[in-house]
């Protein structure tokens, strides 16, 4: 195996490996919701009328709006990934901020939707809901559990986006650090900076035994490695965001459309 490949292994920089890991994680999310979908299917089978009635009480317009919002946010997310693949950092940031905004819009809609229901006294354990038929109690139980868990995932996705924005906006001070044991054989020598023509620009003082370390600092740059590692992070966060979208793709017809 070549030395480069071994270095790669040491750094664990393996985009395919990291994507396999991410997909495996997404499978766990998929099955987490899978358990809820199973419960939904069983209770729909058990209480068809109540589910149809419960569904008719939800606001289809808001549901459809939120579907469009999430689908569009998926588009902007994938555009952010595409932009970074083409090394267009600023465009990528723009799309990421857009995606974040769509996420927020989704949550605001959700807030008003839930708020309205809670105002009517329809929430798990409420006095009002216990008066309703059992099937409806279960319908709303599932409604709050599933959309709530989904909302939690939207929030997690948005937090991840904040981290990504930080990675994309942070200029790194690329530093090369040399420690004392490597510097000892430089005793009595000087450091010299020169330009292409060989003209001396700057000369350091003589290195004595008191010198224990040496640092080269480049201020405020976006390094290649940083962009590459951000790309992997962004891709994986994108995968997560699309999964959240896919789950909503199923939640939308199950809760908002079974009534008609």
């Amino acid at each position: 195996m070549s030395q480069a490949a071994e270095l790669t292994m040491e750094k664990h920089y393996d985009p395919i490996g990291s994507r396999i890991g991410m997909w495996l994680f997404l499978f766990t999310e998929f099955l987490l919701f899978g358990g809820l979908f199973l419960l939904y299917a069983i209770y729909l089978n058990k209480y068809p009328e109540e589910f149809h009635y419960g569904s008719s009480q939800l606001d289809q317009f808001v549901g459809a709006m939120n579907t469009i919002i999430l689908l569009t946010s998926s588009l902007t997310m994938v555009l952010a990934v595409g932009a970074l693949q083409r090394d267009r950092r600023k465009l990528s940031i723009f799309f990421l901020v857009t995606t974040f905004t769509f996420g927020a819009a989704f949550l605001i809609n959700k807030y008003f939707e839930w708020g309205h229901k809670i105002e009517l006294g329809i929430y798990p354990g409420s006095q009002e809901l216990t008066q309703h038929p059992q099937g409806e109690i279960v319908f709303y139980g599932l409604y709050y559990a599933m959309t709530g868990l989904h909302g939690l995932h939207v929030i997690i996705g948005m937090v991840i986006m904040l981290f990504l924005l930080y990675f994309l906006l942070k200029k790194s001070h690329r530093a090369l650090s040399i420690k004392s044991n490597q510097i000892q054989n430089l005793n009595g020598k000087r450091l010299l900076l020169s330009d292409e023509t060989g003209k001396k620009l700057w000369k350091s003082q003589e290195i004595t035994s008191e010198v224990t370390g040496m640092d080269v600092v480049v201020k405020g740059v976006f390094t290649e490695e940083q962009l590459k590692s951000s790309e992997v992070k962004l891709e994986n966060s994108g995968l997560y965001w699309h999964l959240v979208d896919i789950i909503w793709i199923f939640l939308f017809p199950l809760f908002y459309l079974v009534s008609m």
Binding site: L44, S74, L75, M77, V78, G238, L239, H242, L243, D245, I246, I249, F250, F252, P253, L254, L257, V258, M260
Partner: peptide
């Protein structure tokens, strides 16, 4: 008004949408 088929059709369309999202966006 598709009665019992409505849910089946809805799930099929949702499945199709997920396939699109997975294949292209993901």
């Amino acid at each position: 008004n598709f009665k019992n088929f409505a849910i089946v059709i809805a799930i099929l369309i949702a499945g199709l949408k997920s396939i699109l999202v997975m294949n292209y966006f993901m």
